[in-house]
Design a protein around this nucleic acid. Structure first.
Lengths: 106, 106
DNA sequence: TTTTTATGAAACCATTCGGTTGCAAATATA
DNA sequence: TATATTTGCAACCGAATGGTTTCATAAAAA
């Protein structure tokens, strides 16, 4: 069972859940009212989001409020930034690759 | 067939392909040599990446070089930025929500 | 106490996904 | 021309995914 942040945000309903609870913590029932799906379906999405630590449950009586852990979202930023650096320095790196090839074929 | 950028980057092999061709355009065969999978499997991943415009094929003789369209990656940035703004202003927005509730219950 | 409400979990189902195998088309090479 | 190479595509398969239905548990309300 792969359970990483990239797989978590692949589903449009889960992205919508993330957007909603970014504004304020919400219960599964309250969330479900915003989508054309059942509470159980939302509950399953919340489980996936919780398992990869994007979301944090907090029990209050018989209700459970789910809130976003925005720090976790930064893992996506990190991957993008890493890629951006490769992209921006690719000509230099290509130069060194070509230089190595030249040396080897001598 | 959902084919958006979020679904595209959900698969770890596709993320690795993106990282490799960020450095330089590559053929399916050359890419496949870097993974423990077949050329056909890489080919299917490339098709998915091409369909959501993350990757651009360029025919050269009988070879096809795939390159990254980094501009497309910025769609992820846009979503993250939008979310960041919601996150950072959530207390203000919560205030206005609560103000509205107060007005309605008067 | 009895009933209602909020929730998670398990079982099931149709669809999608990632991978492999086999084949056909197009280009390069002998 | 005959052969080898590079590639995409279709068919198939097992596993994962998203959704629904049903049930059990715990807390609040009547």
């Amino acid at each position: 069972m792969r359970r990483d942040i990239f797989q978590a945000i692949a589903d449009p309903t889960r992205r919508a859940i993330i957007t909603l609870i970014a504004l304020q913590a919400m219960t599964p029932n309250a969330l479900a009212e915003n989508f054309n799906t059942t509470r159980q379906s939302v509950s399953k999405h919340l489980r996936i989001l919780t398992e990869c630590r994007l979301v944090k449950p907090e029990q209050q009586g018989r209700e459970i409020y789910y809130s976003l852990d925005f720090e976790k979202m930064k893992e996506i930023d990190i991957w993008l930034e890493q890629l951006r650096q490769i992209w921006e320095t690719r000509f230099n790196q290509l130069d060194s690759v070509l230089a190595n090839l030249k040396k080897q074929t001598k």
